[in-house]
Every structure is written in structure tokens, then in C-alpha cells.
Computed example of a mutant assay.
Amino acid sequence: MNEKFFDLKKEKQDRIINAALKAFALGGYMHASTDDIVRMAGISKGLIFHYFETKLGLYQFVYDYSTRVINIEINTGISKDETDFFTIREEVEKVLATCMKQYPYIRLFLYSAAREDTPEAATAILPAREAFEANLKSILDRGDITRFKQDANYELVENIVEMTKEGVLQGRFREGDFRADDYLAEVIRYLEMLRVLTYD
């Protein structure tokens, strides 16, 4: 990647990043079109290749950029003293919603990238993906599981939480008018319901 990309005005950087996030989130690496990206970003195709050389270079950049943005927000926005299982997850979602106000497709892109099956794309993001997932896991693992009812399997609850969050996100985008605050409010309602159902 050409570091001069960061010499562009921030508004233009974000247009390019958001266009790439949307294309890769909706189409995966294989089906995302650089023609669509440059059209959405309002730039020339030559500019993409000037800064990123290849479509793979752009994909790797937006993944690295996305995880870096989220990690910074997570590491500064979540209390290191918090141990409640559901409160930690609510705080993570608040951080993600903040990121989605600037980069609406960032979370959807990360869900898509986690399932990426194009070998060169999956390999290109693997180190950043492993580091990101390890950082997130270290935060989520602080959650106290001793408050769960005896017959409430916290691992299954975690699976429900993850599937619910992705389902809500997908649904909000399908409705066509995504708002990060609405997404967050809906996810928190589900988390609060699960807290009531699974805690002693």
C-alpha cells in the first residue's frame, strides 16, 4: 500500500474506505467489483491501483484498517474493571456502533471476512484477523459466568448472542435505512432479555 493514501483529505479517504467496505461486505472478495468501488467512491479506477496496487491490496488494507479502528475504540472505551458477562458485550456493541457511525459497513465486512473462502484473500488477512479475534476474546473472557443459572449453558448463550447480533445487523441493512443507534438499541434489548432469562 502506498502510504501517500493518508495524505488525501480525510473525507476522500473515508469515501474510498466506505465504498470498499460496502462492496466487500456484500459481495465477499470474489464478487466485489473495483468498478463498483470507484463508482461509489467517486474516484478514478487508476487511483485505487495507484494507492493499493491490486484488489487484494485494497482488501487487506480495509481489513487491517477496520480492525485497527475497532481495537483502538475497544481498548479505550471498555472498562478494564467490568466483569459482568452481558455488560461487557453491551459495551463492545456500543463501541462497534460508534465505529459504524463513521463506517456503516465495517461490522458486516468483518462478519463476511471471517467466512472468506477465497484462499489468497483469507491468507492475506489471517495475521490481522487472528490478532483482532484474540484481542476481542480476551475482553469477552473477562465476563463472569458464575451468575448463570445452573442449567443455562453460557457457551450456548454466547452463540445465541453472536447469531442475534449478526441477524439484527443483516436485517437493519435489508430494511435499507441503517442507523447505528437503532441497531445498538435492538441488540441491547436482546442482551437484556437474555440476562433476565439466564441469570440467577
Rank of each mutant, 00 (worst) to 15 (best):
residue 8 L to F: 14
residue 8 L to D: 13
residue 10 K to T: 13
residue 14 D to T: 11
residue 15 R to Q: 15
residue 19 A to C: 08
residue 22 K to P: 02
residue 22 K to F: 04
residue 23 A to N: 08
residue 23 A to V: 06
residue 30 M to C: 07
residue 32 A to E: 10
residue 37 I to W: 04
residue 40 M to I: 06
residue 42 G to R: 02
residue 45 K to A: 09
residue 48 I to W: 01
residue 49 F to D: 07
residue 49 F to K: 09
residue 50 H to P: 06
residue 53 E to W: 08
residue 54 T to A: 10
residue 55 K to E: 01
residue 55 K to Q: 07
residue 56 L to F: 00
residue 58 L to E: 09
residue 59 Y to M: 04
residue 60 Q to E: 15
residue 63 Y to Q: 04
residue 64 D to G: 08
residue 64 D to F: 01
residue 66 S to T: 07
residue 67 T to W: 03
residue 69 V to Y: 13
residue 73 E to D: 09
residue 74 I to Y: 11
residue 74 I to W: 06
residue 75 N to A: 04
residue 75 N to P: 00
residue 77 G to I: 05
residue 79 S to H: 09
residue 81 D to C: 02
residue 81 D to G: 04
residue 85 F to D: 00
residue 87 T to R: 07
residue 88 I to M: 01
residue 89 R to C: 02
residue 90 E to A: 01
residue 91 E to P: 00
residue 92 V to H: 01
residue 93 E to R: 04
residue 93 E to G: 01
residue 95 V to L: 02
residue 96 L to K: 11
residue 97 A to H: 06
residue 100 M to R: 04
residue 104 P to L: 01
residue 110 L to I: 05
residue 112 S to A: 07
residue 117 D to E: 13
residue 118 T to S: 14
residue 123 T to Y: 14
residue 124 A to L: 07
residue 126 L to C: 07
residue 126 L to I: 06
residue 126 L to K: 14
residue 127 P to M: 12
residue 127 P to R: 11
residue 128 A to V: 00
residue 130 E to H: 13
residue 133 E to C: 10
residue 134 A to S: 11
residue 134 A to P: 02
residue 136 L to T: 10
residue 138 S to D: 14
residue 139 I to P: 12
residue 139 I to S: 11
residue 141 D to S: 15
residue 146 T to C: 09
residue 146 T to V: 11
residue 148 F to K: 06
residue 150 Q to Y: 13
residue 152 A to M: 02
residue 159 N to Y: 07
residue 160 I to N: 11
residue 166 E to W: 05
residue 173 F to K: 08
residue 173 F to D: 07
residue 175 E to F: 13
residue 175 E to V: 10
residue 176 G to K: 06
residue 178 F to W: 03
residue 181 D to T: 10
residue 183 Y to P: 03
residue 187 V to A: 07
residue 188 I to A: 03
residue 189 R to F: 14
residue 189 R to S: 15
residue 190 Y to N: 15
residue 190 Y to W: 13
residue 193 M to V: 11
residue 198 T to S: 09
residue 198 T to P: 04
